[in-house]
Design a protein around this nucleic acid. Structure first.
Length: 425
RNA sequence: GGAGAGGUGCUGGAGUGGUCGAACAGGGCUGCCUGCUAAGCAGUUGCGGGGGCAACUCCGCCGAGGGUUCGAAUCCCUCCCUCUCCGCCA
């Protein structure tokens, strides 16, 4: 959420920002509602003040055994007027709240301006594209031949966009999770946490998935419950409605969770294989940072995610998402895209963002400034470190051999009982 | 799921209709004192919002939302959460 004070004072900048993001949030309406809301608030405050004074008088009069009829009538009249004002304010306020929640975060100046992903800026490449002397197979073809992923049975028991990992496939998935968690906890000093994977709508509003993106979520038919689309939701909300000590910043968490996405609106895209699933595993990095430090924390976060790919020996590039391609809550997003030979392109495997105070404001996550004693909003950041399913895809495709076997990257072998090659089960 | 108890400020804990944003204690902060530590003395100490250049001032907040009343932390209703016992269960 943006600060209404900032919006009021920087109307032109906000208008330009919305255009850059191709967002049609109604700024004029917001400003109008804000003014209305403040006028109502003022009037209601005045009425309440008057009523308070009257009530005090009534109390005193009654105590002295005097007649307070006149005052009580006056107070009842006041209450009538108050009630109608309060009703109007309630409506205005609700409309205002609903509207301001649909305003996206302001992109950082370093973000390229453009309407879609063609305006994303490539920042760097790491490693080299693997060369193949034979025709490469797609990961799903390889996995089926090896008998390590069963797509058909997953479809039978759940539906499309699900997969069952079998034998070495399941072991590879688990090895990757453990490897990633170990690197981030032991080498990068993140604290591992395992949060609920079901959350309420308040949490989803806090991180920005609601109210605008409800159709992307799986809503449970029980209470106000949703399956998480990413660990960002429960982990960022870990400190919702709390005030942290300045000395505790930055707080760094790493969480492994399954993630659930409806993938509404992606019909026909990536229908084959593991790329786009309703359920997938992800190791997520989340930081709560001091506002003065969040940009350097973003660079560090990106480096932490990159290291996983480097240790796995996977070729990738880093791009900065353009204003039109970046997420609603983000001020700046780096995508790490891994090379996938069968697609002959780079595909997103991690997304690292600085949300500045946008989520902190929605979820009310603050820290107490030591020098001023004031409470300020922290900055929140997160990034995949990494999406596990897509890492499996990248390993299968990049390490495939002509005979259909797959070499296990060295760093994973200790996690796979020493296995150095995946052969047919 | 059943029976009972309870949710108050950083913490403990008073407060059952009127001047209570809330006694008291602890903690924190600031002075004084002090060889160090501890103790002592005095003061201070919640969050959000509106108005004002400012000193300041006004409104809201005692789990959440409704209701009764001139007036609610206090009374009533609904919900959420916590604790104890029982049932069930991994």
């Amino acid at each position: 959420m943006l600060s209404i004070g900032y919006i009021r004072e920087n109307e032109d900048e906000i208008r330009k920002m919305l255009a850059n993001r191709s967002n049609n949030a109604d700024l004029d309406k917001l400003i109008e509602l804000d003014e209305k809301r403040r006028i109502f608030t003022q009037e209601i405050d005045d009425f309440r003040h008057e009523r308070k004074e009257l009530s005090k008088q009534i109390g005193l009069l009654k105590k002295n055994g005097e007649d307070a009829e006149k005052e009580m009538e006056k107070a009842a009249e006041l209450n009538n007027e108050l009630a109608s004002l309060e009703e109007k304010q309630r409506e205005t306020d609700e409309e205002y709240q609903n509207l301001i929640l649909t305003f996206p975060n302001i992109p950082d100046e370093s973000v390229p301006i453009g309407k879609d992903d063609s305006f994303n800026r490539e920042e760097k490449k790491w490693g080299v594209k693997p060369e193949f002397t034979f025709e490469v197979k797609s990961h799903d073809a390889l996995a089926e031949k090896l008998g390590i992923i069963d797509f058909n049975r997953a479809t039978k028991i759940a539906g499309s966009r699900f997969a069952t990992m079998v034998g070495t496939g399941a072991k590879l998935e688990r090895a990757l999770i453990n490897f990633m968690l170990d690197v981030h906890t032991h080498e990068h000093n993140y604290t591992e946490i395992m949060p609920p994977v079901i959350v309420n709508s308040k949490s989803l509003t806090g991180t920005g998935q609601l109210p605008k993106f409800e159709e992307d979520l799986f809503k449970l038919n029980y209470r106000d419950y949703y399956l998480i689309p990413t660990a960002e939701v429960p982990v960022t909300n870990h400190f919702a409605d709390e005030i942290l000590s300045e000395d505790d910043l930055p707080v760094k968490f790493v969480a492994y969770t399954p993630c659930f996405r409806s993938e509404a609106g992606s019909y026909g895209q990536d229908t084959k294989g593991l790329i786009r699933q309703h359920q997938f595993n992800k190791v997520e990095l989340v930081k709560f940072a001091h506002p003065d430090k969040s940009w350097q924390e973003l660079e560090a976060l990106l480096a932490d995610a990159e290291e996983i790919l480097q240790e796995l020996g996977l070729h990738y590039r880093v791009v900065t998402l353009s204003t039109g391609d970046m997420g609603f809550a983000s001020a700046k997003t780096y995508d790490i895209e891994v090379w996938l030979p069968s697609f002959n392109t780079y595909r997103e495997i991690s997304s690292c963002s600085n949300f500045t105070d946008f989520q902190a404001r929605r979820a009310s996550i603050r820290y107490k400034d030591k020098s001023t004693g004031k409470n300020n909003f922290v900055h929140t950041l997160n990034g995949s470190g990494l999406a596990v399913g897509r890492t499996v895809v990248a390993i299968l495709e990049n390490y495939q051999q002509e005979d259909g076997t797959v070499i296990v990257p060295e760093v994973l072998r200790p996690y796979m009982g020493g296995m150095d090659k995946i052969s047919p089960e």
